[in-house]
Amino acid sequence: MNGWGKRLVIGIPLFWLFLFFLVPFGIVFLVSLGSPQFSVPPYSPAFEWDGWWPHFVGSFENYIFLTEDDLYWRAYLGSVKIAGGSTLLCLLVAWPMAWIIARAEPYRRNVLLMLVILPFWTSSLLRIYALMGMLRQGGIVNSVLLWSGIIDQPIQMMQTDFAVYLTVVFTYLPLMVLPLYSTLEKLDGALLEASADLGASRFATFWTVTLPLSLSGIIAGCLLVFIPAVGEFVIPDLMGAQDSPMIGNVLWGEFTRNRDWPVAGAVAIAMLALLVIPFMILRSSPALREDG
């Protein structure tokens, strides 16, 4: 490929990221430096124009405010807890799935992969509503359990943490299965045979050969699930009891209820910063680097 083609290939995604990630991010950051007011738009600008020169009039007090009320910190930890738990559950469910798909006959593999991807074609909101129909008091699950005589009172499943975890896992599972599948599929079967030939038990092979070799898939999958799950607010709102605030819901409240776009912006920026730093650390981990 000549120099221009190469630049174009790299340039398009870079331009895309610049336009739809960096620019909005910059706008949010500027908003977070202002203060709320009744106007269109509902915040004071961070810069005033003094002739041709921008003149800084904003402040960082919104960031200081976040540290003064423990609500934000607790909500963030609550989100990390739910996202972390869901990521772990996803991994436990997805690893065996990915393994089975990767080891299946090639002609079956595509069908199995299709089954994983297919739910993505429906809006996640529709899938959440379908789950609500199953879990509610008079829903399918309770009806079947009552009918079969296993329980004599419907179980309260909606508005519980159980419903939140179940829905998050259900929604994000494909994001864990796919990267795991792509690493496990590349795994050389000869390595497993060698391990068995050298006398390792099946567990020892799994623990010392298969699992470490799938580490890059595990990390990629965990990041893909964990990051969006931290910001999740639809699922806890629809399925949860709202007794533990999540940062996404707090942010929504700042933006709409308090009409405080600057504080909402500060929450968003702080959240991103708290997520990016661990990501940078992970990025420099050897497991990811080897894989390129």
């Binding site: 009320d69 609500l71 709202q242 007794d243 533990s244 605030p245 707090v250 409240g253 209820r257 308090n258 009409r259 405080d260």
Partner: peptide, 14 residues
């Protein structure tokens, strides 16, 4: 507004 919404969060989260 901020006070009302903060009180409300406290009510909800118990």
């Amino acid at each position: 507004d901020r006070l009302v919404n903060r009180l409300w969060t406290t009510v909800k989260t118990g």
